[in-house]
């Protein structure tokens, strides 16, 4: 098991280099010159322009730029943004906020998704199942920005239960509503995955055996059916964690959460390579680690699964 984990962690190195190289190239290849975004369409003399290009290494060929980036990376220098801030400081502020948001969203998805999914699965075709289906359809067909806007308006502005936007501190309590909005689409996936697995497993032999042995219905559902139904759910959640962290652009915008999504979007639009690359680099690490955890959970949920 330990060697399996070490092997996976060792894989991080090529993955990290591959991802940063790819992203560095993608930002390099985006159309337009970052200096145009900086100047905002106002005139700029050629001399000022070339001084700026030199300052951000934009005047050098791609391989030189990337080489310089890697060289600085070794000394933990992630570069500076156009606004003159250390990228490491930007990440240090944004990632904890987004991490809280993503973890909350993941918890909401996981807990409610599994509970709703189990009930829907156990009572297939009954009213609860149908209600959940309709709710899932709404979540899928009505985009996040609309749902987020409506929830913010109703709960934040009309009912005044919470403030409509998140403060700079972005506490767990403030992030609950944004996390709910962020997790809704994934919640639909989790409900349907759980429901299907439960339906598949509830008529399985081991369930009948357990029931026949006289175990209580609760125990049969929670231990025997649920445990055997969780592999697809865990897989989905593991893959979703990273998406939640990088893809929260819309939710962060609605609730003014000072997180990674906003930072990433702005950096892409401005062509601010060091920021984009650093964010993606961290995201890749999160993905690899999340998948490692998921694989560990497989073995826990199904002891037949073994890792060398």
């Amino acid at each position: 098991m330990l060697s399996f984990m070490l092997k996976r962690i060792a894989q991080l190195i090529p993955v990290f280099i591959g991802a940063t190289l790819l992203v560095y190239f993608l930002v390099f290849a985006t159309p337009g010159n970052p200096i145009d975004a900086l100047s905002g369409g106002k005139p700029m003399s050629d001399a000022t322009r070339s001084a700026l290009e030199a300052q951000y290494n934009l005047d050098k060929p791609f391989w030189v730029q990337y080489g310089l980036y890697l060289k600085n990376l070794v000394t933990f220098d992630l570069g500076t943004s156009f606004s003159g801030q250390e990228v490491s400081a930007l990440l240090g502020r944004a990632f904890p906020v987004t991490a809280r948001l993503a973890i909350l969203a993941l918890l909401i998805e996981g807990v409610f998704g599994v509970i709703f999914g189990v009930i829907a699965g156990m009572r297939k075709g009954k009213w609860f199942d149908s209600t959940i289906l309709v709710a899932s359809l709404i979540v899928i067909a009505v985009p996040t920005f609309v749902l987020g806007f409506v929830l913010q308006f109703v709960i934040g502005v009309k009912l005044e239960w919470v403030k409509p936007t998140v403060s700079g501190a972005a506490t767990w309590g403030e992030l609950f509503l944004p996390a709910l909005v962020l997790g809704l689409v994934s919640l639909a996936y989790v409900v349907r995955l759980t429901r299907t697995s439960v339906i598949e497993n509830k008529s399985a032999d081991f369930v009948r055996t357990a029931t026949a042995k006289g175990l209580s219905r609760n125990r049969v559902v929670s231990v025997h059916i649920l445990r055997n139904s969780l592999i697809p759910v865990v897989t989905f959640l593991g893959a979703d964690l990273g998406s939640l962290m990088g893809g929260a652009i819309v939710t962060e915008g609605i609730f003014n959460v000072p997180g990674v999504g906003h930072l990433l979007y702005q950096a892409i639009q401005k062509g601010e390579t060091p920021t984009v690359v650093a964010i993606v680099g961290v995201l890749v690490i999160i993905f690899v680690v999340a998948n490692l955890i998921v694989d560990m959970l497989y073995a826990l949920l199904d002891p037949r699964i073994r890792y060398a």
């Binding site: 996040t144 819309v250 999504g261």
Partner: peptide, 10 residues
């Protein structure tokens, strides 16, 4: 990849 329903809210 999970697609965010990106919008003009941004």
């Amino acid at each position: 990849m999970r697609y965010s329903h990106a919008s003009k809210a941004v």
